[in-house]
Computed example of a mutant assay.
Amino acid sequence: MGWVENADGTVTITDDAASGGGPAEDMQKIHDVAVRLGGLLKGTRQARENLTASQTRNGWVYVETDTGGVYERISGEWRLIAGGNRLTTYRSNTALPGVVTPLIRTGFASGRTEPGGQLIHNFAEAFPSACIGVVLMIDNQSNFAPTAGAYPYLIATTVTRQGFQSFWPDRANTEVATAFIAYGY
């Protein structure tokens, strides 16, 4: 057997031993072409995460069949470049530990405040690792009179992956609601 490399870089395997080397050289040439042209991988998220550095090369692309995420191998790391049910990488001065894609949760925190004016809210779905911020949307509240000091406040020390608490001045034992945006990973 043998091989001929065509002008477009493809390889044609031939029956003519004079056109290339023996079986070992043929297999090496096929391997070299596969590496040069390869780099499009497909599988589950777990399979991508289990790949070792020696099993991948920078520039390769991986399509997750379970999430739809498309990742490129850049500087030895997988980076989300398209698709999936996540946001693409964002620029920030504060890096999330080992994470390049934040998760966003939105909704309404509603219910009756406690005697001290606190409202406890649990997310419909907890963040996998942590919630790192919550924004209360003060223009979207029910049972709210915009008097001085009556805006709800986030109690920052209560933010967890499961939920948060807000403080409503002058609203003890009162039904309240406010929209929120929470972000985490």
Rank of each mutant, 00 (worst) to 15 (best):
M1C: 09
W3T: 02
V4I: 14
E5Q: 14
E5Y: 01
A7Y: 08
A7C: 04
G9Q: 04
V11E: 13
I13F: 12
T14H: 08
T14P: 12
D15Y: 06
D16H: 07
S19W: 04
A24G: 10
D26W: 01
Q28T: 05
A34C: 05
L37P: 01
G39E: 02
G39H: 01
G39S: 03
K42S: 11
K42H: 07
G43F: 00
T44F: 01
T44G: 10
T44D: 08
A47I: 00
E49L: 11
N50A: 15
N50Q: 13
N50P: 00
L51R: 02
L51A: 11
T52N: 10
A53R: 05
Q55I: 00
N58W: 01
V63Y: 15
D66F: 00
D66R: 03
D66H: 02
V70D: 15
Y71D: 12
E72N: 02
S75P: 01
E77Y: 06
W78E: 12
R79T: 08
L80Y: 03
I81T: 12
A82Q: 12
R86W: 10
T88I: 11
T88H: 11
T89L: 13
A95I: 07
L96S: 10
P97H: 10
P97G: 09
G98T: 07
G98E: 06
V99C: 14
V99R: 15
V99P: 14
L103E: 15
R105Q: 11
G107M: 07
G111V: 00
G111P: 05
E114Q: 11
Q118W: 10
H121C: 08
F123P: 05
F123M: 07
F123V: 01
A124L: 14
E125D: 13
F127L: 08
F127Q: 14
P128L: 05
P128K: 14
P128D: 13
S129G: 06
C131I: 00
V134I: 11
N140Q: 14
N140Y: 06
S142Y: 12
A145Y: 14
A145L: 13
T147I: 07
A148P: 06
Y151T: 05
Y151P: 01
Y151C: 03
P152D: 04
L154D: 02
I155C: 02
T158I: 02
T160M: 13
Q162I: 03
G163N: 03
G163C: 03
Q165I: 00
S166G: 04
P169D: 02
R171M: 04
R171H: 14
R171Q: 11
R171N: 11
A172D: 09
E175T: 03
T178E: 01
F180C: 00
I181D: 09
A182L: 00
Y183N: 04
G184V: 00
Y185K: 08
